[in-house]
Amino acid sequence: MKHFSTRILLAIVMTAAIAATGRAQCGIENKAFKSGEFLYYDLFFNWKFIWVKVGTASMSTVKSTYDGRQAYRTSLITRGNNKLDKMFMMRDTLLSYCTDDIVPLYFRKGAREGKRYYVDELWYSYPAGKCHLKKHRIENDGRHVWKDSEYKDCIYDMMSIFLRARNFDTGKLKKGQTIPMPISDARRLSNSWLKYIGKETFKMEGSNDKYRCLVFSFIEREDEKNHELIRFYVTDDVNHIPVRLDMFLSFGSAKAFLKGYKGVRSPMTSKLN
């Protein structure tokens, strides 16, 4: 169960992204969201052929300051309910600060997953046109692990890549196209990418709401094999909000469905009713 929470978090914050190179390209004009946006999700797990609600997730984006400069402060909180707690404790909080043009500044993840608790932190700087990451991890046994890494390309975390990705023009994507995903945590840089599946109309579970969606598959290469981790559906409009997430786990499958939203920047033109 140890990857269940991480998979849910990653799924919710992923839409579509294109790897950027060079310091000048780390930023992007924001047209997809505004301060005061809130997204809410219900989480489900397939238990003995029955889909059972096991928790909730919520994401907020507001204007704030970081190190004396204006920034977007984005947080994501997942909470398992009593049914999930009997199998696996899940209490996770992610926090991210980015500039107005979505250049990452700081990232933190505090995660209680089962009996394990750990913290990941990233501090970003950009000396000489490169991307420098100061990494800090607090292990379950209380050990503090520090590491510095520098890259010639722009690197993102699970939160900042979401904000950046929502501002890409996905209308130019072709079926089967793959897109590199430069995502790091305090341990490593992942070897992962997106594959564009195509467009589909999705009817929300438990309601009559329908959405025109772009469908993507998130793939990671590990142990010399490619693994599809997530298939997700995002609104086919300028908001690019995930409305459905299918997660493929070693012990089963899980889903997340958009329950509600407020404060979105643009009309949800992908909603069909």
Rank of each mutant, 00 (worst) to 15 (best):
S5P: 03
L9C: 09
I12Q: 04
M14T: 05
A16M: 08
I18C: 08
I18T: 12
A19E: 02
I28P: 02
N30V: 10
N30W: 03
K31G: 02
K34Y: 05
K34Q: 14
F38C: 13
Y41M: 03
D42N: 13
K53Y: 03
G55Y: 09
T56D: 14
D67I: 04
G68L: 11
Y72V: 02
R73H: 15
S75K: 15
I77N: 10
I77D: 07
R79N: 15
N81D: 15
K86R: 13
F88S: 00
M90V: 15
R91M: 10
D92V: 06
V103I: 12
K109Q: 14
K109T: 03
G110R: 14
K115E: 13
Y117I: 09
Y117C: 04
Y124E: 06
P127F: 06
K130L: 02
H136D: 04
E139T: 13
D148E: 15
K152S: 14
I155S: 03
M159H: 03
I161P: 00
L163K: 09
A165H: 03
K172Y: 10
L173Y: 15
T178M: 05
I179R: 00
I179W: 04
S184T: 00
D185T: 01
D185P: 01
L189N: 01
K195I: 00
E200D: 10
E200G: 01
E200Y: 02
N208C: 06
D209A: 12
D209N: 11
K210V: 10
L214I: 07
K225V: 00
N226A: 10
I230E: 00
D237M: 07
H240S: 09
I241T: 14
L245A: 11
D246S: 02
F251S: 06
K259W: 10
Y261I: 06
G263H: 09
R265F: 12
M268N: 13
K271D: 07
N273C: 09
